[in-house]
Computed example of a mutant assay.
Amino acid sequence: MASILAHLQQFPIGFTEALYKGKKYGVTRSDFNGGKSIKLYAEEHGGTHFISLNYYITTTNEILKPCEMPEEKVIHFLKHCHL
């Protein structure tokens, strides 16, 4: 999951815009617990598509928790989204 963390860290904390599949997205990243918890929410401008996830870093593991969507969808977005 280390690569997932690297993809998450490409987004600055706060709001930014990104491109995914040729469409613009508004992306908000929030970090909590000294960076041990990350929340990311992305919403397509003028569309209905969105991505929502939480990522947790524990002393023994890193856990990706998509919010009501398949993990594969979240991973694809993170790997193919461009700032």
Rank of each mutant, 00 (worst) to 15 (best):
M1Y: 07
M1I: 05
M1A: 13
A2M: 11
I4C: 04
L5E: 07
A6V: 10
A6R: 15
H7K: 13
Q9L: 14
Q9R: 10
Q9T: 07
Q10V: 06
F11Y: 10
I13C: 12
I13G: 09
I13V: 15
G14E: 12
F15G: 01
T16K: 12
E17A: 13
E17Y: 13
A18F: 07
A18P: 13
L19I: 11
L19M: 14
Y20N: 03
Y20P: 10
G22M: 01
G22S: 13
K23I: 05
K23N: 14
K24A: 13
Y25C: 02
Y25A: 05
G26D: 12
G26N: 14
G26A: 10
V27W: 04
V27D: 00
T28M: 14
T28Y: 11
T28E: 15
S30H: 11
S30V: 04
S30G: 10
S30L: 12
D31L: 15
D31G: 07
G34T: 07
G34D: 11
G35E: 13
K36P: 00
K36D: 14
S37D: 09
I38Y: 03
I38D: 03
I38W: 00
K39H: 06
L40D: 00
L40Q: 04
Y41C: 08
A42F: 02
A42Y: 02
A42L: 06
E43Y: 09
E44D: 04
H45A: 08
G46W: 02
G47N: 08
T48R: 02
H49I: 07
H49R: 11
H49N: 14
H49F: 04
I51E: 02
I51R: 04
S52L: 06
S52M: 08
N54T: 08
Y55G: 06
Y56R: 09
I57N: 02
T58S: 15
T58F: 11
T59C: 09
T59G: 14
T60N: 15
N61V: 03
N61F: 05
N61E: 15
E62F: 06
E62K: 14
E62N: 14
I63T: 11
L64V: 04
C67R: 07
E68D: 15
E68T: 05
M69I: 09
M69S: 15
P70V: 04
P70L: 06
E72H: 07
K73D: 05
K73V: 12
K73F: 09
I75S: 01
I75T: 08
F77Y: 05
F77Q: 02
F77R: 04
F77S: 09
L78E: 01
L78D: 06
L78Q: 02
L78Y: 06
K79W: 03
K79L: 06
K79Y: 03
C81P: 08
H82F: 08
H82R: 11
